[in-house]
Lab assay of single mutants.
Amino acid sequence: YYKILGVDKNASEDEIKKAYRKRALMHHPDRHSGASAEVQKEEEKKFKEVGEAFTILSDPKKKTRYD
């Protein structure tokens, strides 16, 4: 999950949140509406992965379990 968000394992809550926003905007489906179906599908997959990574890393209990 750290790799997906592009943050270090010791990243602060704020750094995780900023990285999530950056990656979410980058891969958001609306940004790729004019792209081919294949690209849209890949970006949607990445967008979901970013969301999942943020869900785990932003919750202290889940993050501890993950680490």
Rank of each mutant, 00 (worst) to 15 (best):
K9M: 13
S33D: 04
D30C: 07
A35R: 08
V50K: 04
K3C: 01
K17W: 09
S58M: 10
E15F: 00
D30L: 09
K3W: 03
H32A: 05
Y2M: 05
H28N: 06
K41P: 01
Y1N: 11
R21N: 15
K22M: 11
A24C: 13
R65W: 15
V39Y: 07
H32N: 03
A19R: 00
N10I: 02
V7K: 02
T64L: 15
A11C: 03
R21L: 14
G6N: 03
E15T: 07
A53R: 03
I56S: 09
F54M: 06
F47G: 07
A24H: 08
K17H: 12
S36Y: 01
Q40M: 02
T55R: 15
G6P: 02
K18W: 04
E42R: 12
T55V: 02
E49H: 00
E49V: 03
I56A: 11
R65Y: 05
V50I: 10
L5N: 01
A37W: 08
K22V: 14
F47Q: 05
T64R: 15
P29D: 07
K62A: 11
D59Y: 00
K17A: 13
F54V: 10
P29Q: 06
K3F: 02
L25K: 15
A24W: 12
E44F: 09
P60L: 11
L5H: 04
E38R: 10
Y66N: 07
D59E: 02
K18S: 13
E44G: 09
R21K: 13
P60W: 06
S36L: 06
D67H: 00
Q40A: 05
E38P: 01
I16C: 01
A37F: 05
A11F: 08
R31G: 06
Y66Q: 15
E15G: 01
A35S: 11
I16N: 04
A53N: 02
A11M: 05
V7I: 13
Y1F: 00
E13S: 12
K22Q: 14
Y20H: 00
R65H: 13
Y1S: 03
A37N: 11
G6L: 00
K62S: 11
T55M: 14
K46W: 01
D8C: 05
G6I: 00
H32F: 12
P60M: 07
E42F: 13
S12V: 01
K41L: 07
D59C: 03
N10L: 05
I4T: 09
E13I: 15
M26E: 11
K9Y: 09
H27F: 03
E43K: 04
I4A: 09
E49C: 02
Y66K: 07
F54H: 04
A35H: 06
K9D: 12
V39I: 09
Y1M: 13
A19Y: 00
K41D: 07
H28T: 04
E42A: 09
A19S: 06
E49Y: 00
K48F: 05
D59L: 01
Y20K: 07
D30V: 09
S12Q: 09
V39C: 05
Y2G: 02
D14Y: 07
H27P: 04
K46Y: 02
Y20C: 06
H27T: 03
F54E: 10
L57K: 07
G51N: 15
G51I: 15
S33M: 11
K9E: 13
K17I: 07
I56H: 08
S36P: 13
E52Y: 01
E38S: 12
Y1E: 00
K22N: 14
P29L: 01
Y2Q: 06
K45L: 11
Y66T: 13
R65K: 15
E42H: 12
L57I: 00
V39N: 04
Y66W: 01
T55A: 15
S12D: 03
K22C: 12
I16E: 05
S33N: 08
K48L: 09
A37R: 13
V39H: 06
E52H: 06
K48E: 04
H27L: 04
S36V: 07
E44A: 14
E49R: 03
K61N: 14
A24M: 11
K62R: 11
A53Y: 00
F47D: 04
Q40T: 09
D14I: 09
Y1W: 02
L25C: 10
L5Y: 04
T64N: 14
K46I: 01
S58I: 05
M26H: 04
G51S: 15
E38T: 12
M26Y: 05
I56L: 08
T64S: 15
V50D: 03
K62F: 06
F47A: 09
K3S: 13
R23Q: 13
K48G: 06
K62V: 08
S36W: 00
M26A: 12
P29S: 06
E52N: 09
N10K: 07
H28G: 06
G51C: 13
E49T: 05
A53I: 01
G34F: 02
D67R: 00
E52V: 05
R31E: 06
A37P: 12
S12G: 05
G6H: 02
F47T: 07
K61F: 10
E15C: 02
D8P: 08
K17V: 12
V7T: 07
V39R: 13
S12M: 02
M26I: 13
D67P: 05
K3L: 04
D30R: 09
R65N: 14
K41Y: 00
Q40I: 07
E13H: 09
S36Q: 08
S33V: 15
A11I: 00
G51Y: 14
I56Q: 11
K62N: 07
E49W: 03
K61S: 12
D59N: 08
K61V: 13
K63G: 08
N10R: 06
T55E: 13
E52I: 02
Y2P: 03
N10P: 05
S12K: 11
K63E: 11
I56V: 15
